[in-house]
Design a protein around this nucleic acid. Structure first.
Length: 823
RNA sequence: GCGAGUGUGGCGGAAUUGGUAGACGCGCUAGAUUUAGGAUCUAGUGUAUAACGCGUGGGGGUUCGAGUCCCUUCACUCGCACCA
């Protein structure tokens, strides 16, 4: 066997074992500046997929980079281990979710180590352990005490055949994915977190995040929160009863010709009309997504009731409609068909009269010829004293008028809804509440926490949560009066688990507190967070909300949990997202067996910049494998020339060695910049490939000279270090081959000399009217005058400017001379 | 529907501040080496009716100069509150 051969399997296993034994990545508090790098923790689905490989390879590169740059790096991992897939697997294969999850974690942990990711495994956490979810329960109680948790009735997708709640993704075309029966909307008592209480804070926080977060994530969150100022107008029913509605378009209030209420509106219960009742029941069955879909036919029916517009006294009909949601505003809207697309369609369908109140000065609007709503700006008409005003100005004026006349007031409204956390499922954190006939809703006392989730369960092929059938779980004593009572069998949304895990990593084993304040003070906030863009609104908003509450409680030192955020793109193949259902997945394990983890990591970092979608290509992986082999061959072939204590005293370099050295320093400069300032890893790798190409281009004789040995030594010394965060195993092995005793992971990132990055000569282009006509090599420090002279005396330029008038000359040092000519 | 993105060679992508479009890699072509294949090394590779030509989804604009800025238009992708 050739000892020069690159045996990646042995090499990778060897270094993984050494890092593990030496606990090379253990993070402990010390005097160095800390750097907390976190990737969104995985759901233990069974085995790693390429999305994981991408996410964690990006993070690992950064972690290793900051470690080499003198930071005390915290780089932890854990498992988001509650959730629906474990239940589905349990029903299908008759394995309890606990066992399924535990085994998946064990397997994926091995896989993580095989990728060479530098985690502090002593800080591993899993949300399905009682040591973790106990603090979910504790926090829930705190939220309740603060008035930030409450219970209310809310709707769920309900399959009457399976007798169970369905997630949105389990509803396909309004039918249950398992039994294909029609899905109902069922009203249930559910727990909510009052995230709307922090809506203003969440918006304000964006100010502190704007330097570290992608602009588009902030924009998405702002839109998701959807703050709008509008008018709460006091319409009245004919009976005199108050009927307030919220509108963001008070300027159109004189044009209201009908009103619409949500099918869930309580007013409907008072109307005794069997036909209407049946219709309302039908509407209630539609899912929210369908109802708000503009494509979908607008359904509605006249309730027979009339409403009075307090601004002009108009008596208008009240409809019930599927597109109005009880959750938003007051569950009722005023409809202005002439100036709202949805209202227009609805009015046409039900032949409701219309009234123009905003007119276009250039081409006046006529109702008879209107075939769509006029939603542009304009001048108010038919609007009492406000007629003639610009509609934008009228908004504020009408609100002012309403407040003075006491027929309405300015209200800030949010699109953001409170966060429903109840799940009628087994595999989640139990909600620590007991229902007593006498005392009502009673929280479980802190000393009795955690409320343990039983792990020995049998689904018996059914989708219904086993907790509801398990007496030993739901039978409880009331903590207040001691009487027999019933325990809550709903569990928490798994987003609760993932809303504070980043803080837990600072003190993962604390058994008396949720988060150790001192530890959190040192380690949090997360300096760099990395995960998919799909979490832009939900997870990232929930976590920010939790952190604000934890900040208020003094548990964490900052309001915001994640200083910088990187959203990585998807991994695609054949033009579509890699997914099991499409069947275009590539198994990371197989790739590692074929090429080694170093190559797989390198490819995934090289194929696209982190933020963009990445196209998987095995040919591309082979290309990276070639590059890794080129490094291996070059270093092993020249290792006898290396010495750790090289120096350049009294040495002069010939031009090719000078070029090698210049390329080295340029490479260090650009890689450092790309990794630290731009997080643009694909170009960093391209730079290193160029350096390897340069190394191969220089002659053996040059390398074998005294000066060459010194250059080789400097090159190896720096190159292996800058390559290390990308391909940690092979570089560590080569580093050892060179005779170094210290681990490369403990070495420092190399410095570069700015002076050495400068070329003696640069190529400058000569343009005529912006088009390149000639090029020349010039000394890098040529004066402007000389450069201009050189351009004007260039043969090609002389030829082409002959007989023409030179109007202007533009000079960009080291780049170009542009001569502007006339005629 | 609402919200957010992306369009550059045969392909993945590069171009950091408006300044040489196509770095780097894949693929392809030729050569060297090899019994052959593979591997490796070297050279070439946007297009072309070969010109002071054309070229960053299409059209228009600003500028000495536009992939980059502005207007407009088309196509595709992702998220939407019980998947995580």
């Amino acid at each position: 066997m050739n000892e020069m051969e690159y045996k990646f399997t042995d090499i990778e296993a060897k270094w993984q074992k050494i890092w593990d034994e030496k606990k090379s990545f253990k993070a402990e508090k010390d005097n160095r500046p800390k750097y907390y790098l976190l990737e969104m923790f995985p759901y233990p689905s069974g085995k790693l997929h390429m999305g994981h490989v991408r996410n964690y390879s990006i993070g690992d590169l950064a972690a290793r980079f900051y470690r080499m740059n003198g930071y005390n790096v915290l780089h932890p991992i854990g498992w988001d281990s509650f959730g629906l897939p474990a239940e589905n697997a349990a029903i299908k294969n008759n394995i309890p979710p606990f066992e399924w999850t535990r085994d998946n974690i064990a397997h994926m942990k091995i896989q993580c180590k095989q990728m060479g990711w530098s985690y502090d495994w002593d800080r591993e956490i899993a949300t399905y352990t009682k040591e973790y979810y106990k603090w979910n329960q504790w926090f829930f109680i705190k939220m309740l005490e603060k008035g930030l948790a409450y219970k209310k009735e809310s709707f769920v997708n309900w399959c009457p055949d399976c007798n169970t709640v369905l997630a949105n993704e389990q509803v396909e075309d309004g039918k249950c994915w398992r039994c294909k029966s029609d899905v109902d909307q069922k009203k249930l008592e559910q727990w909510f977190f009052k995230i709307t209480d922090k809506a203003e804070d969440l918006l304000q926080g964006h100010e502190t995040l704007k330097d570290g977060w992608p602009e588009r994530v902030i924009t998405m969150q702002k839109n998701w929160i959807g703050r709008s100022t509008g008018l709460m107008a006091n319409f009245k029913l004919e009976s005199g009863e108050d009927f307030p509605i919220f509108t963001t378009r008070p300027d159109t209030i004189f044009g209201v010709t009908f009103m619409v209420i949500a099918p869930e509106h309580p007013l409907l219960e008072k109307i005794n009309n069997p036909e209407l009742k049946a219709f309302v029941e039908k509407l209630k069955k539609e899912s929210v997504i369908d109802r708000t879909n503009e494509e979908k036919e607008k359904e509605g029916m006249d309730t027979g009731l009339k409403v009075i517009n307090p601004f002009n006294g108009d008596k208008i009909p009240l409809f019930v409609g599927n597109f109005v949601l009880m959750e938003y505003g007051t569950g009722a809207i005023m409809a202005v068909p002439t100036h709202d697309k949805r209202d227009f369609k609805f009015a046409k369908k039900f032949k409701i009269p219309m009234k123009v109140v905003i007119d276009n000065a250039e081409s006046p609007i006529k109702i008879e010829t209107m075939n769509e709503a006029y939603v542009e700006e304009g001048i108010l008409v038919n609007s009492g004293d406000f007629s003639g005003m610009k509609n934008k100005e009228a908004m504020a004026e009408i609100i002012k008028f309403a407040e003075k006349k006491n027929i309405g007031k300015e209200v800030v409204n949010f699109r953001l809804r409170d966060w429903g956390i109840s799940r009628q499922r087994y595999w989640g954190c139990p909600i620590p509440v007991i229902y007593c006939e006498d005392c009502g809703t009673v929280t479980v006392p802190e000393k009795d926490l955690p409320v343990e989730l039983p792990v020995k369960v049998d689904f018996q092929g059914s989708t219904i949560s086993p907790l509801t059938k398990m007496e030993s779980f739901y039978k409880a004593k009331c903590p207040k009066c001691g009487k027999d009572a019933r325990r809550e069998t709903d569990t928490m949304d798994t987003f609760v688990d993932s809303s504070w895990y980043y803080a837990r990593y600072s003190s993962p084993n604390a058994d008396n507190v949720m988060v150790d304040k001192e530890a959190a003070k040192y380690w949090t906030p997360v300096d760099q967070y990395i995960g998919g863009i799909e979490h832009a609104c939900m997870h990232l908003l929930y976590a920010r909300f939790f952190n604000m509450v934890m900040f208020d409680m003094g548990l964490v030192p900052t309001k915001e949990p994640f200083t910088k955020l990187l959203t990585q793109g998807m991994v695609c193949k054949d033009g579509a997202k890699m997914s099991k259902s499409i069947g275009n997945t590539v198994d990371p394990n197989e790739m590692c067996l074929k090429f080694g983890a170093d190559t797989v990591r390198l490819f995934i970092l090289f194929a696209a910049p982190p933020e963009k979608d990445l196209d998987w290509s095995e040919k591309g992986v082979e290309g990276c494998f070639r590059f890794v082999n080129r490094i291996w061959r070059f270093v092993t072939a020249h290792k006898d020339l290396y010495s750790a204590d090289y120096n350049y005293n009294n040495l002069t370099l010939n031009s090719s060695l000078k070029k090698v050295r210049c390329e080295l320093h340029k490479t260090i400069k650009f890689v450092t910049h790309d990794v630290r300032d731009r997080m643009q890893y694909n170009t960093a790798i391209a730079r290193m490939m160029e350096l390897i190409n340069t190394l191969y281009a220089c002659s053996e004789d040059d390398y074998r000279s005294e000066a060459g040995k010194t250059v080789i030594s400097e090159v190896f010394n720096s190159l292996l270090k800058i390559l290390n965060p990308f391909v940690p195993h092979i570089t560590e092995e080569l580093w050892q081959h060179l005779g170094n005793k210290e681990l490369l992971v403990n070495s420092n990132w190399p410095e570069y000399s700015e002076e050495l990055t400068h070329d003696d000569e640069v190529e400058v282009v000569f343009q005529l009217n912006g088009k390149i006509r000639s090029k020349a090599m010039v000394s890098a420090d040529i004066s402007k005058e000389d450069l201009e002279k050189k351009a004007l005396s260039d043969e090609k330029i002389l030829e082409m400017t002959e007989g023409k008038e030179i109007v202007k000359i533009i000079l960009v040092p080291k780049k170009l001379v542009n001569i502007v000519v006339k005629g």
